[in-house]
Design a protein around this nucleic acid. Structure first.
Length: 244
DNA sequence: ACGCTTGTGTATCCTCTCTG
DNA sequence: CAGAGAGGATACACAAGCGT
């Protein structure tokens, strides 16, 4: 059918919409686990779910997803099938972390408490339990410093897809610096907006917009202090270039 | 001209991590 | 367990914009 998926992003949820039908029957049939789809009628939606790591592959079924989510007290996705020709799925939660699903799939021995804490980490909610934080860090499940923990990418390294979580954790400042220097070598000068645009999507998802601003500001400061760049414009309208 | 607001870089603070 | 290092957070000064 129509291969276009419309993704609408809200602060607290993600709505995926796709023209076409679901599988045979309705989602509830599969949630119960009594029915197994022979084929997916809506491969586009399935692919999107796979990319969001709600399901690992085509083979990771709806029932398992629901059972797993429910068993761990995670918010469950909602389907809206009121329009016969449109499938609409709502994923609750601010963040969908690709590392998270892989972690659950690989680490089958996680306790409920561990999973709940990891869920809070992925949603960037504070984890108050000091002992749990220490425990998770020791198990190499989380990294980062309070309050900006993030799920450890090393767990996922055991599987094959390395590119997925490149964006999940922050890159080193040397990498950001290189990006800026490459940009300046190419275009000779850059405004703050240029640098923001250049780095924004590269920054860790653990940072909100305000923190990203600060992060970039600090990076610029750092580069200026070490004599890499200098500002030939005003403070209001900075014009950054490579320092001599 | 004036005051207010906003956005920027700079300096300093503060908290956490790491290492031994 | 302590001290140093790292780096995000915070406070501040300044420049520009904008309305009156």
């Amino acid at each position: 059918r129509n291969g276009r998926i419309i993704v609408t992003e809200y602060p607290d949820r993600l709505v995926l919409e796709n023209e076409g039908q679901f599988f045979e029957g309705v989602p509830a049939d599969y949630i119960s686990g009594h029915k197994t789809p022979r084929r997916y009628r809506n491969p586009f939606l399935v692919q999107a779910m796979a990319e969001l790591s709600m399901i690992d592959t085509m083979g990771y079924g709806i029932h398992e997803m629901y059972a797993g989510q429910r068993r761990r007290f995670f918010p469950l996705p909602d389907y809206d099938l009121s329009d016969a020709d449109v499938v609409q799925m709502t994923i609750h939660g601010k963040i969908v972390d690709a590392v998270f699903s892989r972690m659950l799939i690989q680490k089958t021995d996680l306790s409920l408490e561990e999973v709940l804490a990891l869920d809070r980490v992925q949603k960037h909610l504070p984890v108050d339990d000091e002992a749990m934080i220490k425990h998770l860090r020791r198990r190499k499940l989380i990294e980062g410093r309070k309050p900006n923990f993030y799920l450890s990418a090393k767990v996922a390294l055991a599987s094959d897809a390395k590119a997925d979580y490149i964006h999940t954790r922050g890159q080193d400042d040397v990498f950001y610096t290189k990006l800026v220097m490459d940009y300046l070598n190419k275009y000779h000068s850059a405004t703050r907006q240029d640098i923001n645009k250049l780095l924004w999507r590269m920054l860790s998802d653990a940072l909100d917009d305000e923190q990203k601003e600060t992060k970039i500001g600090n990076l610029i400061t750092s580069m200026r202090r070490t004599g890499k760049i200098k500002n030939s414009g005003s403070r209001r309208a900075p014009n950054w270039g490579i320092a001599e």
